[in-house]
Every structure is written in C-alpha cells, then in structure tokens.
Design a protein around this nucleic acid. Structure first.
Lengths: 268, 268
DNA sequence: GTGAAAACAAGAGCACTGATCTCGAATTTG
DNA sequence: CAAATTCGAGATCAGTGCTCTTGTTTTCAC
C-alpha cells in the first residue's frame, strides 16, 4: 500500500508518547484514565464516522466533531495529533470492516467446494459494502485525501479483500478444480506472481492463474468504483445485471468451474 | 481547451446574466472587455491547474490563485461563481485533454486494420496520461470532490475514452475480424447493450462483445487507478508487465485477433 | 457625443477551518 | 502525601470560501 517504510512515523493515530505500554494488551483500559481515553477515542471515531457518512471526507471537521461531543476543539488533539491521523484511523477501521464483511460472506457459503458461489459471494460483498458506505469506500479506493502517505498500518487490513479473492482461487486449485491456463508471462510479471504465491502460503499456484486473479481483482474495484462514482450513468447504470454477468465472466477467466447443481444459483 | 461551443453555459463560469450573446460564436472576444474576460478566465484556469498539479484538488485555493494573479479574491467570483465551478471547468478540460490524447494515440497507429495495436495504443495512452497528471486523473476518476453532482457538461468529454475503446472494437467487427462470443445476457444487460450499440452509431455489434468491452473498460480504469493510488504496491507494483499483459488479456477477451506480423509488436 | 446601464475590481467582513500554546485542574505514580 | 504526567479549555494565528458594498471603468443606445 505504501512504498516508504517509515511512513508517518510518530504521526499516526494515538499519542506520540510511547507511554504506558508496559502492561501489554492484556485487557482494555487498566486505569480509569486509560479506560476513559479509550472510550473517548472510540466516541470521537464514531462521531467522525458519522460525519464522514454524511458529507464525505471533505466534510469531516475536527471542530464539528469536538462540538458534537461537547468538548473544546483543542482537546481533540490529545487523541489525534491531526485531522489526517483521524482520517487514517477511520481508513483502517473501514478496511477492517470491509474485510470482515467480505470474509463473512465467503464463510457463509456452506459448501466450501462451491468455489464459484464463494467467488460470487466475495465480489457481491464488496459491491454491497461499497453501496452501503459510499463515502468510506471513496476514502479507501478514491483519491488519496491529503498530501497523504498511506501509513504502514493500513497494508494489513487493506490486503484482506485480495486475500479473500485469492483464497477462493487457491482452494479451487488445491481441490483440483482449476486448470493451469498456461499463460506466457513477461519475466517481471513471473517474478511478481511468484512473490504473490509466496505471500499466499501455498505450495504452488499457476502463475497465469495468479495474474488472472489480479486482473479480476482490479476489474472488480474498477467496476464498483465506476458504478459508485457515476461513471456508468446513462449506459450500464443500474449495474446489477452487468455486475452479475461480469463476476461470472471473471470467474470463467480464472477458470472456476460451474458449481454443483444444488449450490445457490446466480441471481436472477 | 474546451470543445463544447458555448463552453460553460449559464451554470458554470461566467456571469449569470445571459448577456451579449447576440453576436454568436463568430470569433473569440469581439469587444475589448470580452477579450480581456476570456484571457483572464484562461489565466485563472491555468494557474488553478498549476496548483492542482502541485497539491491536488485539496490544495486548490481561490485565494491563492487570486494572490498569484495579483487580484483580489473577490474579483475571482466574477469569473467562477464558486470554487466548485472552477473545479468543474478544470474537470472538463482534463476530460478533453485525456480524450484528445487517447484519440491521438489511436490515430497514430498507421495500419487502421491493426486493431490490437490500436487497442494497446488507446489503453497505454490512458495509463500514460494518468501517470503524467496524477492529480487530474484523481479529479476525474477518484472520489467526487464536493457534495458534487456531475454537471451535464462533463458527460460529453468523459465519453471520449470509452468511445475510443469502442471505436477500435467496432472497426474490428465491421472488418469481420471479430467473432460473436455468443454470450447469454440477462434481459437488463441486453437492453443496456442495445442502448450502447445505438449510441455508437453502428448497425449491429454483438451484445456479448459490447459487454466484454465494458468489462475491459472498467478493468482498465480499475488497474490504472490502483497503480496510481498505490494499491498495487508490494505485489504488482512496477506495473508495466502486469499492464501490458492485462491489456492483451482483455483484447483476447473481446476477441481482437493478433495483428499482422508487420504491425508494431507488444512492448518488451 | 452623452448619459444610462452593465460589468468590473477592490476592500471589509462573516463564519468557518486546522493547528499551536499556555494555564489551571484532575489523575496517576512513586 | 508529593511529584509527575495527563488532560480540558480558552485564546490565538493563519488561512479558507463566500457575500456585500463602494467606487470605477467600459459598453451600448440614443
């Protein structure tokens, strides 16, 4: 997600003081002060998320948040050193919310061997989440907001969706349901596919399949973003059919076989 | 810069009064005042675009623009009723710049029958333009900036890229170089494909091909956006190979045949 | 030409914003 | 209990988009 290793350094969420880390993450908020701090932090984020959902990142105002919470604006800086840090915290939360939703959608498919149904579920979950929280989606996948350097802490949560997508493909492959497309790859791409395969903790996965899944990944977010940001208006605008069709087309591109007949059929 | 004849219309730049339209669009700036107005408008946009390229839409400040131009900030409102209107003007210009670049890249392929080469050229032009003006790309395809309602005047310029993509496909089809993929489409999608086909002024085009081109269109922008916004970092980050490979894969998905041997070969 | 009408630039001002600093009050820690 | 730390509030600063008023300049019709 971000190329610079030290990213924000001391400027990410939370107070910069290394502070009372001695207890470790045993249970939340030992002292009353710590508990109050955690609660207030959560409350700030909740109110900020509310404003974000209302008017987008542009309309998120520290002063408005503090006003709504009945505190001075300056007090907010004890919890988030800057507006961007608050935004970063919201970004991480949003990545995690989306990731959790997607993973849940995958898990909800009872038949773990119905790979195409799982693929549908994962893709559909992305679209549904985006439709439900358009501003948060825009925060994650739209233009980077400030000058911005994506903090290190976001790359983990951000990877959950591609992990879910690749998880389905890996399962299909290890189940023997996938054929090697036998694509010829450029050397650079071959190496990158190898790195991805390694990150997936899987013995082997045809590199052509890896790349095709990458194509489907970028396609999915391109399509969802276009729908959400109005670029499909006038042509593919009610995008339900286009989306459903495309998800199948991408599954076919990867090579996911049709599900057994008792699996949930494609919508409509 | 702008292609639409009356350019801004009543709602964007310019005073709201219908004013001196009697002369018609014969030649730019008849009276001295009109000429000065046109020049200043262009100068404002130029300076605004400069600031945009520097710090993104977030960093575009009316006051800074006026300061740089040596005028009072209030005077700027005679030319653009609001900051969003200035942004809208920049958006339209950017769409046109991108569209012109893409169309030029297509035209630059001498052999009009080398459809795959033209496809490569068009896709590559999108990526190159995006890399060259990341902030303007973000303005067009990132999160909608204000509360925002895409003004009517943007849809024309915005359509130039998909038109260029479809143009290649239509040419390939009319040249008999394309096979009907014979995709089964949902009724809604079938209707939308018919609408698109109608908008293309082409007698017939297999609806499956239309939809596949739509898939490639969304994939292209998803991939370019992901690269530009850093979502490929750590995996497919130097995206040249991935991009080249994917462009070919999408051309294959549509059914564009390989070019004749004397045509420019795929890069690398 | 001349006088009315329209367009214009500038300045003051409003209601905001993010951010910093200082100063008492509360709380945790030794 | 005392010292150290954390905390909240107020004042303040520089900056923003935008509006309104005032006086000047240009244009247009007679």
């Amino acid at each position: 997600m971000d190329a610079v290793p030290h990213s924000t350094g001391p400027s990410s969420a939370g107070p910069k003081s290394a502070g009372p880390e001695r207890t470790g993450p045993k249970h939340a908020g030992r002292t009353a002060r710590e508990r109050a701090r955690a609660e207030l932090t959560a409350e700030i984020k909740r109110e900020a998320r509310r404003q974000l959902s209302d008017q987008g990142a542009q309309g998120l105002s520290l002063r408005a948040v503090s006003r709504e919470l009945g505190m001075a604006s300056s007090a907010l800086y004890r919890y988030f050193p800057s507006r961007d840090d608050l935004l970063t915290a919201l970004i991480i939360d949003a990545y995690d919310a989306l990731g959790a939703r997607v993973e849940a959608a995958d898990r909800a498919v009872a038949d773990r061997g119905a790979h195409r149904a799982r693929w549908r579920a994962v893709c559909g979950a992305v679209r549904e989440w985006a439709a439900g929280q358009p501003h948060e989606y825009a925060l994650l996948y739209g233009s980077p907001v400030p000058g911005y350097i994506a903090p290190e802490a976001t790359i983990g949560p951000a990877a959950r969706v591609p992990f879910a997508l690749f998880g389905v493909v890996v399962d299909a492959w290890t189940a023997g349901a996938l054929a090697d497309p036998g694509d010829a790859l450029l050397p650079e791409l071959e190496m990158q596919a190898a790195i991805i395969t390694g990150a997936l903790n899987v013995i082997e996965l045809p590199h052509g399949t890896v790349v095709r899944t990458g194509i489907a990944w970028t396609q999915l977010f391109g399509m969802v973003g276009f729908e959400l940001f109005g670029h499909l208006a006038g042509t593919l605008d009610p995008a339900d059919a286009f989306f459903a069709h495309t998800v199948e087309a991408m599954a076919t591109l990867i090579g996911l076989p049709a599900d057994p007949p008792d699996a949930p059929a494609p919508p409509a």
